[in-house]
Structures are given as structure tokens and as C-alpha cells.
């Protein structure tokens, strides 16, 4: 392993897979937030949430562009961002299960955002020290945006958790329902273990405690209970990052990919 950002071919395959993981969670969550545009609870919030979606979409594109470059080292050619986004099937998507969950109510959407944002910030923060310089550079740009996302979603969790009786109940239910998807974020498989050992990927198992502390602190401020850890979906070697998804991703991709797939020879 060198520190110059150029890896051995065997590592390149792992890096490609890892970059898709980072990209796909951003793209899928941005797609979900795109469903909200024009339907938010108040204009100011519509605008604010769309900014988060645009940030994630931008980050996803940076990861995909780099993934295409890495792919070119290990395959006859590397795919561009649109081929990767629009022409991969669900089983080839590498996003976390959490982000593909449907929007539901505003409480569900904010709970999903909040749980992801805190993980996302810790992961990106670790990646700013990646030995892969490109990864470190993208993470350094993204981490500033995500710091704002964390502040925004945490603020909302507190407002809704400690708002009215009804909002408290909805918020608690939303957190409880999504909790089973949080374990996956901290379960490293062989790919991530190898890349973390090489100093390229974030060691996600190390992020678990800081995440619990941060999330727990906000939930306490919000007068919400930290759910008990039960069985965690996708945290046992077969989950979103291995291409094993919930039913929801297929529908999301069917909508998102419909046009490029129906006119494969077209450019847009």
C-alpha cells in the first residue's frame, strides 16, 4: 500500500465497491427527498429540505465519478455517473437499508434523516483522513454540508419530540420503527475491514459509540426514549451494502430509471 492514492488492483475492486456504497446511500436518499419537493409542511421547510437533497445528490455524483475512474483500472472501461445511477439493478445497488425506506410522514422522513446524518458525519469525518487522497478530498467537501444537515435534523427532532403530545408520539414511533436499520451502519464486512485496515475506508465499528452518544443526547433533549437494540436488519453479512435490499428499493429505482432504460440509445 502506498500513500499516494494509487492502490493495488485487488484493492481497486474493493475501493470501487466501497465508493458505490458511499454514492448509493446519497443518491437514494436524495431521490427520496426529491419526492417531497412541493409538498412540505411550510414553504421555508420545503426550501430547506430540498437543499439537503441537493447536497446529497452532489456528493453522490462525486463518489460515482470517482467510482467510474477506479472501475476503469479494473475493467475494460469505467462507467459514467449516469450509467452507474440509471442502469444498475437493485441487487447492484449498495446503499444502506435505512435510506431506501419510504418517506412516510414528516416524522418518519426526519427520523430517517437524523439517524443517517449522524452516521454520515462521523463516517465522512473519518474519511477526511483516508489514505486515498481523492476520497479524503471528497469527504472534506461533503463534511461541511453534512455538519449542517446534522444540525437541521437534530433541531427538528428536538422540536417535534418536545412539541405537542401528538408530535412527541409520532416522533417516538418513527424512531422506534427505523431503529432496526441502524445496526447495519456499524457492521463491517470483509470489504470494509480490509479497506479500513489499509487506511482507506472508515472503520465503522468504531463509529458506533460516538453515534449512540450523539443520537442519544439529541433524543434526551427531545424527551424521546433511545430504543433498545433488537435484531438489526442487514447487519449480519447480508444487507443493503451487499445488494440485499427491502422491497422499497425496486420501486424507487423503477421510477428513477424509467426514462433512460426505455430509451437506451438516447442522451439527455
Amino acid at each position: 500500500m502506498t500513500t499516494t492514492g494509487r492502490c493495488a488492483p485487488a484493492t481497486d475492486a474493493l475501493v470501487f465497491d466501497y465508493l458505490l456504497r458511499l454514492a448509493d446511500s446519497d443518491i437514494v436518499l436524495a431521490q427520496r427527498l426529491g419526492e417531497w419537493v412541493g409538498k412540505g409542511p411550510v414553504l421555508e421547510e420545503d426550501i430547506a429540505q430540498t437543499n439537503v437533497g441537493l447536497d446529497l445528490l452532489g456528493q453522490g455524483r462525486l463518489w460515482l465519478a470517482y467510482a467510474g475512474e477506479v472501475e476503469a483500472r479494473i475493467a475494460p472501461r469505467g462507467r459514467d455517473e449516469n450509467e452507474l445511477a440509471f442502469l444498475r439493478d437493485g441487487s447492484e445497488y449498495r446503499n444502506l437499508l435505512l435510506v431506501e425506506q419510504p418517506n412516510g410522514s414528516y416524522a418518519d422522513t426526519l427520523a430517517r434523516q437524523f439517524l443517517y446524518d449522524h452516521w454520515h458525519l462521523l463516517a465522512l469525518d473519518a474519511l477526511t483522513c483516508s489514505r486515498d487522497e481523492r476520497i479524503a478530498a471528497i469527504a472534506a467537501k461533503a463534511v461541511k454540508e453534512v455538519r449542517y444537515h446534522v444540525e437541521r435534523s437534530s433541531g427538528w427532532i428536538v422540536r417535534l419530540g418536545d412539541g405537542t403530545e401528538q408530535s412527541h408520539e409520532r416522533m417516538q414511533r418513527a424512531i422506534d420503527a427505523l431503529w432496526m436499520y441502524t445496526g447495519e451502519m456499524f457492521a463491517a464486512d470483509a470489504t470494509e475491514e480490509a479497506l479500513a485496515a489499509a487506511g482507506i475506508a472508515a472503520g465503522v465499528t468504531l463509529l458506533r459509540e460516538p453515534w449512540r452518544k450523539a443520537v442519544g443526547g439529541v433524543l434526551a433533549d427531545a424527551t424521546l426514549a433511545l430504543p433498545a437494540d433488537g435484531w438489526m436488519q442487514g447487519a449480519h453479512g447480508r444487507g443493503g451494502r451487499q445488494g440485499a435490499h427491502s422491497e422499497h428499493l425496486g420501486h424507487l429505482l423503477a421510477v428513477m430509471q424509467s426514462l433512460p432504460r426505455s430509451m437506451p440509445d438516447a442522451r439527455w
Binding site: V42, L43, E44, E45, I47, A48, N51, R152, G155, R159
Partner: peptide, 20 residues
């Protein structure tokens, strides 16, 4: 101008509405 429930959110909303 804009609407917000409190000062903290007014500042955040102002960032999103008026500094895009």
C-alpha cells in the same frame, strides 16, 4: 422576510431561503 417558529430556525431558514 420569512416565517419561523423561533430565532434559531429563522436564521437557518434565512440561510436556505436568502443565501442559495
Amino acid at each position: 422576510s420569512l416565517h419561523a417558529p423561533d430565532a434559531a430556525m429563522a436564521i437557518r431558514n434565512a440561510r436556505d431561503v436568502y443565501t442559495r
